[in-house]
């Protein structure tokens, strides 16, 4: 596709801090190249704002390679914008044409409070991981990587679940603000491997309880999470989490997990 430049109108959510009420601000941006990434377009806008002596827009970003999960942004009603299997940093401006208006909002969920502008606090995900997303490992010398035989299919499924980068697009896109796809990916990649066995009976229950405590909504199998996940995490993981949960409920022990 041929390179072109465009002028755009951005409507961006500005919010000073967690407690203050936010609002939309309108910014014209000029001379954006179709080769730029969406975040580079924001860099141009921010440089322009700094030059004018105004405060730049705060947004999360880190690797800019589509693998870290830091960037967020709800773009024209879509988490990470309209491209399939794509993070915001990998969304490119060739998606847009001259004169377009783009509305950019932060992830919206009670469990992801806005810190500033487009930056939200996703530490609720960390606390869910702390509740059960770990395995027991012996101390001493590292074991040989091939010492445990693992079926190819299970290794592949586990790897696919482990691709979750914890970006929170699933929560942002879910009409219920549910974190089930994230939790299911984190439970799945361990449940499929022998290394995950020691905590298997308690992991799903503990992580689900923490997820509820953090105030996420509950899953009603709508499927928007899967459609918006930049890593293509499948709803089959949610089915697996449900099975893991039912399994630990029926496992015979009535103790608190």
């Amino acid at each position: 596709m041929e390179h072109y430049t465009m002028n755009l109108t951005l409507k961006v959510w500005k919010q000073k801090n967690k407690n203050e009420k936010g609002r939309f601000e309108t910014y014209p941006v000029k001379g954006i190249s179709s080769e730029m990434s969406f975040l580079e377009m924001f860099d141009v806008l921010n440089e322009q704002l700094v030059a004018e002596g105004k405060e730049p827009i705060a947004f999360d970003h880190d690797c800019r390679e589509g693998i870290c999960g830091a960037c967020s942004m709800y773009i024209n009603g879509r988490a990470h914008g309209p491209w399939h299997n794509t993070t915001t940093c990998q969304l490119h401006m060739r998606q847009y044409k001259d004169g377009d208006t783009i509305v950019v909002e932060p992830w919206r969920a009670n469990s992801f409070p806005v810190i500033k502008d487009l930056v939200v606090d996703r530490s609720s995900f960390d606390r869910i991981i702390q509740a059960g997303g770990y395995i027991s490992v012996n101390t001493g010398n590292a074991v040989d990587a091939n010492s445990l035989p693992i079926e190819k299919q299970k290794a592949d499924e586990s790897f696919a679940a482990a691709a979750c980068i914890g970006c929170g697009a699933c929560v942002a896109a879910c009409p219920n603000a549910s974190a089930m796809l994230f939790v299911s990916a984190k439970v799945s990649h361990l449940a499929l491997l022998p290394q995950g066995d020691p905590e298997r009976k308690t992991r799903a229950v503990n992580m689900v309880e923490q997820m509820d405590k953090e105030g996420f909504g509950s899953c009603t199998n709508i499927g928007a999470c899967e459609a918006e996940c930049p890593k293509g995490i499948s709803l089959e993981n949610i089915a697996r989490l449900n099975r893991e949960y039912i399994g630990s409920v029926f496992s015979g022990s009535s103790d608190k997990a």
Partner: peptide, 16 residues
């Protein structure tokens, strides 16, 4: 659980 609602939503593109 959503809190503040989205100003723009394109739900039809991602779910039924």
């Amino acid at each position: 659980r959503r809190g503040t609602r989205y100003a723009v939503s394109a739900g039809n593109q991602t779910s039924r």
